[in-house]
Structure formats: structure tokens, C-alpha cells
């Protein structure tokens, strides 16, 4: 499989929208993390589907060092309850629909890792559609992409291909620099 992320574009702090089929989106997540880590980046993964512990295992299984990834986990606290944030590793938010908490968490995690080469990965736009209207998702992604540009940080948004309506797809396309359809 050729590179998903162009290293030059990543270096230029570009923002990517990666499209994958429902059956391969998890593997694309791992592939991207692997590529970005190999380029010396620390990746902040916002996970809205799998708990961070499961993703950590999957990354480790694929040779990604746990030190090169930290998480904003929108899944675990809802089930387990009183889990505590682990500085530098994971920040929990109550549910994927709480965009305010998510925005705050993104800001704080970026602060935690200031000085490093950072990439943010959002997994996934598609899961967010369960909880939010496309209009709200669009606003949130606009907010996040603006923030990334201001802070000069690259970002990756994962989404299921052919699952976004043309209007949302057009909006997302204008917010990001590069769209990669991995099939």
C-alpha cells in the first residue's frame, strides 16, 4: 500500500481528509498513525468509537510506540464511569456529542505536547453523525481546522467514503487541504 500521507504536505502542516470503506477504516487509522509516527510526529487521536486502550493495543501490534500517541477518548467514560485522565496519555470526555468539552480537550492536549511535531487525528467524522447534525459537525470541524492552522499543526480527519452527503462533503473539502480516497 503506497503512503496515505504525503510527508512533504505533512511537513507543510496540511490538513487531510482520509476516506475509507466501512470495513477498512480501522486499518486506515492504524496505517496513518504508523506513517505519521515513522516521520517523527506525535499524534493526538480523538476516538469516538473504540476505547483508547484497544487502539493502543492495535497500534502496538502494528509496531507503533505508545509514546508517540496520546488520546482524547469519547467512549470509555460513558461506560466505565469514574476513569481519570492520564496526563500525556489520555483525556476523557463524557460523550462524542459534547463539542465544548472536546474543544477544550483538544486545546489542553496540544498544550501538553507543545514543542513537539504534532498531528491530530479525528476518528471519525462518520461516528459523529450518530450524535450530531451535519451542520454542527461542519461547524465543529471548521473550528478545529481553524485552530490547527492558527497553531500551525497538521491534522487528519477519517470518514467513511460515500457516506457523506454532497453538501457536507463539499464543506469538509473546503476546510481541508487534501482529500485522500483510500477505497
Amino acid at each position: 500500500m503506497p503512503d496515505i500521507i504525503d510527508p512533504t504536505e505533512l511537513e507543510q502542516k496540511k490538513i487531510f481528509l482520509i476516506l475509507a470503506s466501512p470495513g477498512t477504516i480501522r486499518q486506515r487509522n492504524i496505517d496513518v498513525i504508523k506513517e505519521v509516527s515513522n516521520l517523527g510526529y506525535h499524534t493526538v487521536v480523538i476516538t469516538t468509537n473504540f476505547p483508547y486502550t484497544v487502539l493502543t493495543k492495535l497500534y502496538a501490534q502494528n509496531g507503533v510506540s505508545p509514546d508517540s500517541v496520546s488520546f482524547i477518548d469519547a467512549v470509555t467514560r460513558n461506560s466505565i464511569g469514574g476513569v481519570e485522565n492520564i496526563p500525556g496519555v489520555v483525556r476523557y470526555i463524557n460523550n462524542p456529542a459534547n463539542l465544548t468539552d472536546m474543544g477544550i480537550a483538544v486545546t489542553e492536549v496540544l498544550k501538553d505536547h507543545s514543542g513537539k511535531k504534532i498531528c491530530i487525528m479525528y476518528d471519525s467524522v462518520s461516528t459523529m453523525l450518530i450524535y450530531l447534525s451535519s451542520a454542527n459537525i461542519s461547524k465543529f470541524i471548521h473550528f478545529v481546522t481553524n485552530k490547527l492552522r492558527l497553531m500551525d499543526i497538521s491534522g487528519v480527519f477519517l470518514a467513511v467514503e460515500k457516506g457523506l452527503d454532497p453538501m457536507l462533503m463539499t464543506q469538509l473539502t473546503t476546510f481541508v487541504d487534501t482529500v485522500v480516497d483510500t477505497g
Binding site: 466501512p22 470495513g23 477504516i25 480501522r26 468509537n49 473504540f50 484497544v54 471519525s124 462518520s126 461516528t127 453523525l129 450518530i130 447534525s133 451535519s134 467513511v160 457516506g163 457523506l164 452527503d165 453538501m167 457536507l168
Partner: peptide, 27 residues
């Protein structure tokens, strides 16, 4: 617009649940 939005917010998430459960079963 509403039907498009809803079909996006119904069809795709069901696929995500299905895949997550299958992946979890494998794990």
C-alpha cells in the same frame, strides 16, 4: 435535504456499529 441528512445519519452509523462489533469479536 432532510432525507439526505437522515439517510447519512442512519445508514452509515449502522454500518459502523456492524463493523465495530465484528472487529471486536475478532479481537
Amino acid at each position: 435535504a432532510y432525507m439526505t441528512e437522515m439517510s447519512m445519519r442512519l445508514k452509515q452509523p449502522v454500518g459502523i456499529i456492524s463493523n465495530t462489533l465484528l472487529e471486536s469479536a475478532q479481537l
